[in-house]
Design a protein around this nucleic acid. Structure first.
Lengths: 209, 209
DNA sequence: TGCTGATCTAGAGTGGCGCTCTAACTTGCG
DNA sequence: CGCAAGTTAGAGCGCCACTCTAGATCAGCA
């Protein structure tokens, strides 16, 4: 036993000083943005946090966990922004546009989506983390579903199954974001935003729209 | 100059013995299936090919290139299967089903999609490879577009823009495959196949269908 | 057949990096 | 002060991609 204050097996460290974790995650965001999530070293993060590599790993156990928590943190932040903006946007069509712009990748170097790509390439195994990511993904679908329900309620949209449309639209935006990341063709972000808006409008528009 | 028979800078090796490359790629497929594309070592591939690691890298230069070429090879094979089966399937709705089943990930361990994930996480930089992958992606869109055109021609489908529907459907299948890979919820392959079939049918069905 | 240069093959060597481990330092509490 | 728990640093280990070099094999030629 003795438990030398170290990290518990595969879970989160139970040790204190959450501000240290926050500092590391902040540094990680910067480092990832500069170096890229695939190339970033623990050393890069430690440098920017003003700590040693051993110290950083004392809090996170594994390098992967730093990237995972960074993504989770950025998703939590983004979800807050999303919910705030959606609440401020009464028109359902405008809300769809807001959501699409927040969800879709900014460009080939979009940090958030590059982290997602990293995660999918090496998926986490522990149930806790898997559930956390499932909730993040769900929250986008639910947010869009609510927008659509509002559109239906206000009479500007029409559908039998808001949840299905929302889910499918999110998966489509996933694919679009991946193509933006790959940057194979000219397929730009602006083009993807327009495609999402158009296809949703075509599917949900009431007759007169 | 002198060029000691080595690999040219970032491109393909110009050296002979293509059967050696083929042998490595075949071994790579096995190794990747067993170990996973993220964990597979050059040693694993070399072992299965009956060669040394140095020998393997003599032909491919970088580990990444092995994975890239493995994916390209498997895509070429799959495209051949796809075109053959589609040619044998006159009914457009049935053809959509065939294509969806070939395109979508088999399950959380699907090798082809795991390689795609790997590729997106660390995208290739050289123009030649980027173009090759763009063509692979395009070929799926074009194949689906042709199916839809056939459906329209035979009067069982209706749409203004077959290319747009095909493209969007492919991106949706990308997103679905990613979720199958992540295996967060019960979202299974069978469920995804049905979703694609249903949504395409809903979008393209003629009135009486 | 023996010579020569090009190509091929093997494996030892190198460097980098994730991760571990130990030892020292700080803090809190009686 | 003294002890224990928690915190910090950094040296060290092991692994793995990639490099380098030296030898093997082969092709063409006299």
């Amino acid at each position: 036993m003795v438990a030398r204050g170290r990290v518990v097996a595969d879970g989160r460290p139970s040790v204190g000083k959450p501000q240290m974790r926050a500092r590391v995650l902040k540094a990680a965001m910067v480092a990832i943005a500069e170096v890229g999530p695939d190339r970033v070293r623990v050393q890069d993060i430690a440098d920017r946090a003003g700590m040693s590599t051993g110290h950083v790993l004392y809090y996170f156990g594994r390098r992967d966990r730093i990237l995972i928590d960074t993504l989770l943190l950025s998703e939590v932040d983004l979800a807050a922004v999303r919910d705030r903006r959606l609440a401020r946007t009464p028109d359902a069509w405008a809300a769809v546009d807001v959501l699409a712009r927040l969800y879709l990748a900014d460009g080939p170097t979009d940090v958030r989506w590059k982290l997602w790509a990293q995660l999918i390439a090496r998926p986490p195994t522990d149930a806790q983390t898997v559930r956390a990511f499932a909730e993040v993904i769900d929250s986008w679908g639910i947010a869009l579903e609510n927008v659509i329900r509002r559109g239906v309620a206000t009479g500007v949209m029409r559908t039998d199954d808001p949840a299905e449309v929302a889910y499918r639209t999110c998966r489509c935006m996933d694919g679009l974001s991946l193509e933006i990341l790959l940057a194979t063709r000219g397929r730009s972000r602006a083009w993807a935003v327009r495609l999402v808006n158009d296809s949703v409008r075509r599917e949900l528009a009431t007759t007169g729209d």
